[in-house]
Amino acid sequence: MNGDDGLLSLDFLAGFTIFMVALVVVVSMVPGLLVGLQSSGIDYDAVAYRTGVILVEDPGWPVHPPWELYDVYHKDEIERMGLAVSRDTPNILLSTKIEKFFNGSADGSGFFDYPDDYRRRVLFGDYPYVCNISMSILGGPTYMVGDARPQGYGYIRRVVKVKEPSSAIIQDNDLYRAAVPSNRTQFTVRLNCSELLDPSISPAYRIDPRIERISVKIANFSYYLNSSPYATLKNVRFHKNYATGSLPFPYTSISPEKYRFQIDGVDTTLTPNAHVNSTLYLMLQPASLPIDPNSVIDIVFTFEEPAPDPPRTTISGLHLYDYNATNVTRPDLTFGVLEVAVW
């Protein structure tokens, strides 16, 4: 009986091996049978297409104020991230939306968290899709968010144009040189919103201070100096609808989320009381001022020399921030390409 056991297990082993080999062969045949049912590849392409459409043809939600202006505390209110300038201008993207959208990372260092925020706001669907979205702008930066692409993924490529913000560069303009300089002088840049937001101008070319940066640069300030190496800039103030009092604003602190102000290339507050030699540069972030479609915003630069000093600058007058090409430079739309990969 004991001798039997030994012999039996050897034969059993042979039989069992044949069974197992057959089973393995059969099992390896079955997936080939099921391959026809697999259609997830099609699904990925469809999701990539849909994501492409949302990004390129939709401005996102909410629109007023636009989602890209929400801060980190109100991030949850962003429902959909679209990059288009407006609903009526498919394939024309806003650069500020692009910057915000691609400000995301997996380690939490960006504004958005990858992949959660992207799944909920652009990819949609119950399935936890993984994506790689990239964009490059001709002669500009290349942006990317997401994981490295694996073998086999859903894909779409969209060709777009990108709208960059406008700027006013004031250089050597005789109109702003007063014949009789005085000790206290003011230079004003005026944004007339009812003119800027004129609906007859396509959103693709519109100057909209509510959603885009506004910048003013006095390039060669020495042109306005009154035989003196410098002039003293007392402050910069914002006025609304010709009111004498200035708008509430963090004038005395540097706050990059609201504005950026440089004298001769050095960052400073809007109440510098400092000497200016060569340049003045002011950039206002979108929606940093309470602007409605009918308001008129004046940006007033006040120069004032202490009492015994002679007048040091001749700059004065009113510069209109409008659609006149000599007043404001509107960059051409730039070609860009956007790729969406989903798996």
Partner: peptide, 20 residues
Amino acid sequence: AMFFLALIVNQSALVGQTTA
């Protein structure tokens, strides 16, 4: 088991119009 699987596969052969 394979027989039943085959029946199921046969049943579900038809897929609808694709997104594309």
